[in-house]
């Protein structure tokens, strides 16, 4: 398929959890025995209701949380003894609210903060900062105060500020929340570009339209357990299970299912796919009708 999201995944496993359990203090466990592997170069959507454990799981990937039981492996090595600051070289984590990290007087300084913490040489810090600003189209705001920029720009600054550390793996927690259509797709395109360059991207979101359109892989959590983890198209086949989890399928997917009995492809994920399939169907009918007469 021409419009299949391109995947640059390799066979190297970059992240792995083995029977991961986690509980906040004395509370009931938030994660209940999660075992999974993520290949280097994957683009994975991570979905589930609030409280299903998405953020809790993701925070284990960069060591912000440590398993109560089980293991997290980064490129095959247990990260137990590695501090967050060191893991940040490999795993970047962008928090949900950009205002929870922005503090600098200029956008440039904000983006240089991470690389500087990594102890890089000043020339390298500058190089990475400029490149990150370029990738996220922030160069014209380099000398602005990031805290007073608009929400869409603050969001991009917060992502660029993590990307500038050049982590192989980039985790984003609901990066499109509160953004309009244009900003959302602009951001998704930029993430897709990073994915094409070989970065592993883990996207936490509630928006199944984005998953359908952009992420080739999808992971669904429910009550601290891994409910589904597969190629996105296969995950979407379990629509009853998804609905049970209160995950709203895109209108196109629902429509494809309703129209399947009359011959439309059931697994259409995006508008062009459904449009093509419906058009094909009509064309075929016309041929049959013409032949019949």
């Amino acid at each position: 398929m021409a419009d299949e999201p391109m995947s640059s995944q390799t066979d190297t496993i970059c992240l792995e959890t083995r029977d991961l359990w986690f509980a906040y203090g004395d509370n009931p466990p938030a994660l209940r025995g999660i075992s999974l592997t993520i290949r280097a170069g994957d683009f994975v959507g991570l979905v589930g209701q609030n409280g299903s454990g998405k953020t809790t799981l993701a925070k284990h990937f960069n060591g912000l949380l440590r398993p109560t039981q089980g293991q997290v492996l980064l490129y095959g090595q247990d990260i137990r003894d590695r501090p967050v600051g060191e893991l940040a070289r490999t795993v970047g984590y962008v928090f949900q609210n950009p205002d929870h990290q922005i503090f600098s007087a200029t956008t440039r300084e904000e983006i240089a903060f991470g690389p500087r913490n990594l102890g890089l040489e000043e020339a390298e810090v500058q190089r990475r900062t400029e490149q990150a600003m370029e990738h996220f189209d922030l160069t014209e705001y380099a000398d602005h105060q990031p805290a007073v920029l608009g929400f869409g720009l603050r969001r991009k600054v917060s992502i660029a500020a993590v990307y500038s550390m050049r982590p192989q793996i980039l985790i984003l927690d609901e990066p499109t929340a509160g953004l309009d259509w244009h900003c959302t797709h602009d951001l998704m395109e930029r993430l897709t570009a990073l994915h094409r360059q070989g970065h592993t991207i883990i996207l936490i979101t509630h928006d199944m339209r984005l998953i359908a359109q952009y992420t080739p892989r999808c992971m669904v959590l429910r009550e601290g357990k891994l409910l589904l983890y597969d190629d996105t198209r296969k995950v979407f086949e379990h629509c009853d299970l998804l609905r049970e989890t209160h995950i709203e399928l895109p209108q196109v997917c629902e429509l494809a299912r309703e129209l399947a009995p009359i011959g439309v492809r059931r697994d259409a994920l995006t508008v062009p796919e459904l449009c093509d399939s419906y058009a094909d169907l009509i064309a075929r009918r016309e041929v049959t009708n013409a032949g019949g007469h």
Partner: peptide
């Protein structure tokens, strides 16, 4: 809660 989240967010940017 805000302090906890901000502290985590900055640690994730390699702040020791």
């Amino acid at each position: 809660g805000m302090y906890a989240v901000i502290s985590e967010a900055q640690q994730a940017r390699a702040l020791n």
